[in-house]
């Protein structure tokens, strides 16, 4: 995998450190439930955007501040922007950020960036990373409810477009969401987007010399999934990191005419 990885080492390191932060935050919220029991009766997916999560906004605020401090230290060129956002964050704004980031409202965060004259990516990135522990906690709590949602082109928990799958220890293909870590089993030759099981419609692409990484493309809906055989890898990275490290597979799939549900034109 390292032979073809196109991601810069420094960026990979930064992401790995952010993953460690998220891991720590996840531990700190482990004791409290974020999903209200009464909300389990929902019938459509994705579930989490429809729920009113009981997330502690003070904690979310702290996570964002911690992330801004981290970014300011690692990327001095963003120090000033992080400070501007930090100074203007109130509990009300943080609550609004949390609500909007769950549904990935890009328009809202674009407006925030314009309002404070900061890089467009920064508010959404911070809000998203700090919300992940809550998303992951919620997805874990909803595990049993989520089993009834199959063949969804998006993650049934958080709505992230399906694009990443791993082959686990037992050899089963599991669609894994890099955002909320929800994973669901999928047939080996089945399109994660439209559910096609016709093997003549499925194309498996491999990168020369890269063992254990495949792109499963569907000729019916032109969707694709990256499939990583974790059994072959020495170091088991988190799905978010693996997703970043295999970004070259996205390029290859897209150069070959495949896309994801996020692109809109396939579904």
């Amino acid at each position: 995998m390292s032979n073809t990885n196109v991601v810069e080492e420094s960026y990979e390191k930064l992401q790995a450190e952010i993953e460690e932060l998220i891991k720590g935050w996840r531990k700190s919220i482990n004791e409290t439930a974020v999903v209200k029991e009464s909300s389990f009766e929902l019938i459509s997916s994705p579930l989490i955007p429809q729920l009113d999560l009981e997330a502690d906004m003070n904690q979310y605020h702290l996570f964002i501040i911690e992330l801004f401090d981290f970014l300011a230290e690692r990327q001095p060129e963003n120090h000033e922007y992080c400070d501007i956002l930090k100074e203007n964050l109130t509990i009300d704004i943080v609550s609004k950020w949390f609500k909007e980031v769950i549904t990935v409202n890009r328009y809202y965060f674009h407006a925030v960036a314009e309002q404070y004259q900061v890089p467009e990516w920064l508010p959404l990135f911070a809000a998203e990373q700090a919300a992940r522990p809550f998303l992951q906690k919620a997805a874990a709590e909803l595990e049993t409810v989520l089993t009834k949602f199959q063949h969804d082109p998006c993650c049934p928990a958080c709505g992230e477009p399906a694009r990443f799958a791993v082959v686990g220890k037992k050899g089963k293909k599991e669609l894994t969401c890099p955002r909320c870590l929800h994973s669901r089993e999928e047939k080996k030759l089945c399109c994660a987007h439209c559910g096609t099981e016709d093997h003549t419609q499925m194309i498996v692409m491999k990168v020369d010399g890269e063992e254990g990484a495949e792109i499963h493309g569907c000729q019916t809906c032109k969707g694709y999934t990256k499939v990583i055989d974790m059994r072959k890898l020495l170091k088991k990275e988190t799905p978010a990191l693996m997703d970043i490290k295999t970004i070259h597979l996205d390029y290859i799939a897209q150069e070959n005419g495949f896309g994801t549900a996020e692109d809109g034109k396939y579904h």
């Binding site: 995998m1 063992e211 072959k232 020495l234």
Partner: peptide, 12 residues
């Protein structure tokens, strides 16, 4: 293989 981040062939 280890240098490429892969498990030994026999283990896989």
């Amino acid at each position: 293989r280890l240098e490429q981040g892969l498990q030994p062939a026999c283990v896989v």
